[in-house]
Design a protein around this nucleic acid. Sequence first.
DNA 1: CCAGATATGTAGTGTTCACTACAGATGTGG
DNA 2: CCACATCTGTAGTGAACACTACATATCTGG
Lengths: 201, 201
Amino acid sequence: MGMGRPREFDAEMALDQAMEVFWRHGYEGATIAQLTEAMGINPPSLYACFGNKEGLLKAALDRYSKLRGVWMEEVVAAATARDVAERMLMGIADKQTDPANPPGCLLVQGGIACGTGSENVPFELAARRAQNEDQLRDRFIRAKAEGDLKPSSDPAALARYVLAVSVGMGVMASSGADREALRQVASVAVQAVEAQSADRT
Amino acid sequence: MGMGRPREFDAEMALDQAMEVFWRHGYEGATIAQLTEAMGINPPSLYACFGNKEGLLKAALDRYSKLRGVWMEEVVAAATARDVAERMLMGIADKQTDPANPPGCLLVQGGIACGTGSENVPFELAARRAQNEDQLRDRFIRAKAEGDLKPSSDPAALARYVLAVSVGMGVMASSGADREALRQVASVAVQAVEAQSADRT
DNA sequence: CCAGATATGTAGTGTTCACTACAGATGTGG
DNA sequence: CCACATCTGTAGTGAACACTACATATCTGG
């Protein structure tokens, strides 16, 4: 039994192009025509490879989350909770204004609210964001155990806070905020984490 | 010359219903069929009164911003910059989880990313958010002049920061965060403003 | 009571959407 | 070289979309 005609396009490169379209226009705003043109393929190839539009989004999110997860490992490798927050938020400021990508964050731009038939898209994005929150929370739990964060601090609340600021910065970036403006936000935000840190005597 | 047949529905009540649909599904996710059903009218009445879908959104945003502006006046009436931030963020936590409305904030849920033909919807929302940022900034400028905020503080950055947190909380609310979770975020966030406040001796 | 003006309900309009049938192309195993 | 399997391009499919033509209804001014 033969193995059939081989695929003529690179699935990962095509995903990168699809990611950019979703990033810029959101899930509902992105059309199959735009996606296929950006990916350099025709609709049947897209459907054979990814199932349907939502399957393509999930594949793009997987790829995005994977790259992001690697970066988050670098972030939580910082020495203190304060440095984790700073590295995270300053990095977010830079990434979300990187001209190589659309402004903002795919996990936000992808679709915060969706119409009938796409209700689970926002959930899908939220689940990916929650992964990052979990990474931060675990790191802050450790920081508290190490005495880096005050005994009165709440690692889960801190992680949720840092993520909330990240998301807010993403929305601002997508509506035109420049890198310097986002860095200022990050700089202020870090001070809340500092306030939860044990005094360095 | 006669004045014609009078309108049979209340435009403001209809707007409230339309607002809720946009809030829940976003601009692109909301269909004319859903909007007219919620408003209790037929398409010709909608188009005669609001022009088109985007006109309806703008009218809903006007109404939303007006109510919000009144509330913001209460917020900036707080005694100190820290209290302004606390009143704002705690109020946001409550409002965005008020079961009387869809979760989150219309100025975010309305549409962060849109497809071809609706590119200015995100700008429209951003402009409304900017109004709130301006109100906060003016208040923080005053706080700095009064010596409430440190001379080294940056009122514009602080205002942008508080708005970023608000937006981030809105996204979290729309993806299921409960009131207590948002209040914790607000509580942490306020500490950054506290850190910019002059020592109360 | 009539003429002009505006609102309403019914029933569509053309367009765009996500998705696919089908035929031909290109590979593998025997 | 042939049977089989998978991919690719062309050209559509029905459904859903924003929006509207039109006849009718309800008002005001004279």
